[in-house]
Design a binder for these strands. Sequence first.
DNA 1: TTTTATTGTTGTGTAATATGCGACAGTGTA
DNA 2: TACACTGTCGCATATTACACAACAATAAAA
Lengths: 301, 301
Amino acid sequence: MDKLTAMRAFMTVADQGSFAAAARQLGLSRSQLNRQVLWLEDHLQVTLFNRTTRRVSLTHTGQAYLENIVPLLDNLHDTEAHLQQGQTGLRGVIKVNAPMSFGLSHLTPAVLAFMQQYPDIRVQLELSDEKRDPLSNQFDVTLRIGKPDSNPALIEHDITYTSRRIVASPDFLTKYGEPTEVSQLATLPCLQYGSLLHGNYWDLMHQRTAMRVKINGVLSSNNGDVLKQAALQGRGLALLPTFIVGDAIGQGTLIPVLEAYQPEKLLISLIYPPNRHMALRLSVFVKFMQDAFEDNDFIVG
Amino acid sequence: MDKLTAMRAFMTVADQGSFAAAARQLGLSRSQLNRQVLWLEDHLQVTLFNRTTRRVSLTHTGQAYLENIVPLLDNLHDTEAHLQQGQTGLRGVIKVNAPMSFGLSHLTPAVLAFMQQYPDIRVQLELSDEKRDPLSNQFDVTLRIGKPDSNPALIEHDITYTSRRIVASPDFLTKYGEPTEVSQLATLPCLQYGSLLHGNYWDLMHQRTAMRVKINGVLSSNNGDVLKQAALQGRGLALLPTFIVGDAIGQGTLIPVLEAYQPEKLLISLIYPPNRHMALRLSVFVKFMQDAFEDNDFIVG
DNA sequence: TTTTATTGTTGTGTAATATGCGACAGTGTA
DNA sequence: TACACTGTCGCATATTACACAACAATAAAA
């Protein structure tokens, strides 16, 4: 027996002062209503109503019970309503996880625009370069750059891509001359993403075929902005995604070279748990981000 | 589906962090537990858990829901526990209805003694001479003097009786002489209970046969104490129950006369609705009152 | 006073559903 | 790689919720 149903039955009977009237109001038979209240009384080991065949009135105990549960059920109803509003309405919280560089430079302005359009949706943006488990950390969406380790338990939604370029400062090119062959990378100073331990090479594409090119790595970092600053100071050639160096390329402070040898584009995607009931604010967020990054390769100017 | 069951299922899964562990704790199968949580999610149109086949973690929404319903269910549990304690324990409220005279003179001291013995039981004593409906006014017990209109919907518990006497003050008897025959009542001034309109006679018993005797009613009242005061002042003969004039008889300020002609004794009884689950404090109260009034006819001294 | 309609309650048959079992694919561990 | 264990789903069955009808009690109407 559903206790909440029984409690609702009890409340309407108390309100109407009659089983028959309550049954009509609730749209079920008198017998069932009677049984529900009887079950409740048996369950509580308490008599809730004084019954005549003609009139029912609350017991002293019943009165106390009623006064206790009415605000309780109201609270429950409010909670659920609030929950559903957060689900179907454009309000609530979205917890986002994204890498540091991309988050600061590109995601933040997009999020600010999003918040302007949907003022009742709050965004909780956590930037970190460590890969976190999107499930156990209760993130609603996680932004990943490059193919993630495909997890079948997660939905992956590609929103845009970033290409990567080999760039150098004008000073550098004046000093060393613009390289024309990839073999020159083995001697020219190169700024490398990741650890030096993981190999001294770049994976490039030339005429749709992949190739691994030896480089002369002089500085490595797991942060692209570090390499960008080094490249701006003319310290070497850097292979960086356009979302980091796009603005510098647009302003001419960094010059792309060896454009026939570009590495694979990196997909930028949002991943999130497959929710049977997806909150509206989430799909709106995903759609908004897809539109915001629509097919510009972060090359500004 | 019982929503409360589903909520409890949800809570244990959230607590244990696993469906299987929660199933073991609740003592039912994983499938059913899964279905209950699924039903709850469908009902709320919300995803509560992020599931891997190996690990479950609360959704952002699920966390909010959990935080909302935990205190709610606690409150419900407390309410029911409190209710049951009031049912099985010696605490709570007893609402009593009794006639004015008897209530003031005899019930009140008994109730005070009762409260001393059961300090956690509160008594709400309403005195009134209008006959009230014991059901619709939420009285737990009603004290009635004389055979009530037997109502099959009510339980009647006789606790004692009161006999009635014809009394007069010594002054009166000195002035008019002590009557020896009931026929004298037709001329001597009589103080009558009830309305004069309802007949100018008393119903008496003589050698186990009922007889109706004509009287000379000079004052009538629906309050016995009024008649008692009049009798004390020597205004006439009064037919009054011993619970009103018992003390005066004991002190000798009122003298019973015509003792061979006594009216029927009046039963004093407690009536209350037939509760399928009778509160312990109620049966204790009834028992206490029965002991308190045990077989003394209110004649003091 | 009798009549009548309505009440709360109880038995009965049926439709709905709650539960356990077994199987499956996925997943962390040895 | 093997293995134990997880969450989920289909299936059979036991349980239960529900409406209908019948009953005695009762308040209002005639």
